[in-house]
């Protein structure tokens, strides 16, 4: 009974209203105006002054960061389209933050190919190291010119806009460099290890 891609089953009487297919939108996504909040549990509330993040190398060396230290790094303004695996997308969202590579510049990343991002509250997500470099990922602390709210991941969240949004860990407090890939929270629950929206890598079984 599996439908074939060439002969789709028509839903009688369905015409569809959102006929505009935006080429900037990955397959299976639709645009929303507001910013839905997606989290698995309660929202951790951490003040900027109390925020800490630890970068850990494969050999176990740790570098601590605090908010003041983070903002002394070169700050960038970022405009990004967001794509949530639950099928909504937002275009042109504005963020301010620091490129992830700026935090990794001084650390010994020998042997590192993957990164596990850790969050307050225990959330984790895995991302290949190269996806966090070359201006493709940031640690952001402002959203639309306001300090990033707790419900959207403040004081600091990871922003990896070229992957599904669950990779952009909210309330981030650790980046652990790893030699091998390992699943994070949602990835252990059946979501895709990589999560490319343009290839619709939603579930591990996609």
């Amino acid at each position: 009974m599996t439908s074939s891609g060439t002969q789709p089953l028509v839903s009688e009487g369905f015409s569809g209203r959102m006929r505009v297919q935006d080429p900037a939108l990955p397959p299976g996504q639709h645009l929303v105006d507001r910013f839905p909040v997606m989290s698995a549990g309660p929202t951790p509330v951490v003040h900027r002054r109390a925020w800490e993040l630890t970068v850990t190398t494969p050999s176990g060396r740790q570098t601590p960061w605090d908010f003041a230290g983070l903002t002394r790094l070169p700050v960038e303004d970022v405009v990004a389209d967001l794509h949530c695996v639950t099928r909504w997308s937002r275009s042109g969202t504005r963020w301010r933050g620091v490129p992830v590579e700026a935090l990794l510049r001084e650390v010994d990343d020998a042997g590192a190919r993957y990164v596990m991002a850790h969050s307050y509250g225990g959330y984790t997500t895995n991302v290949p190291l190269e996806d966090l470099l070359d201006g493709r990922a940031w640690l952001v602390f402002d959203h639309e010119d306001e300090p990033l709210s707790a419900e959207h991941g403040g004081p600091v969240r990871l922003l990896v806009p070229h992957l599904y949004l669950w990779k952009s860990a909210k309330w981030v407090n650790g980046l652990t460099l790893m030699s091998h890939d390992a699943p994070g929270f949602w990835e252990s629950l059946g979501y895709h290890l990589y999560g490319d929206p343009w290839r619709e890598q939603r579930h591990s079984r996609d």
């Binding site: 839905p36 909040v37 997606m38 698995a40 549990g41 309660p42 639950t86 099928r87 949004l165």
Partner: peptide, 11 residues
Amino acid sequence: RAERYGERSSP
């Protein structure tokens, strides 16, 4: 466990 609504929250 929480699921925020309107849109699905998993994740």
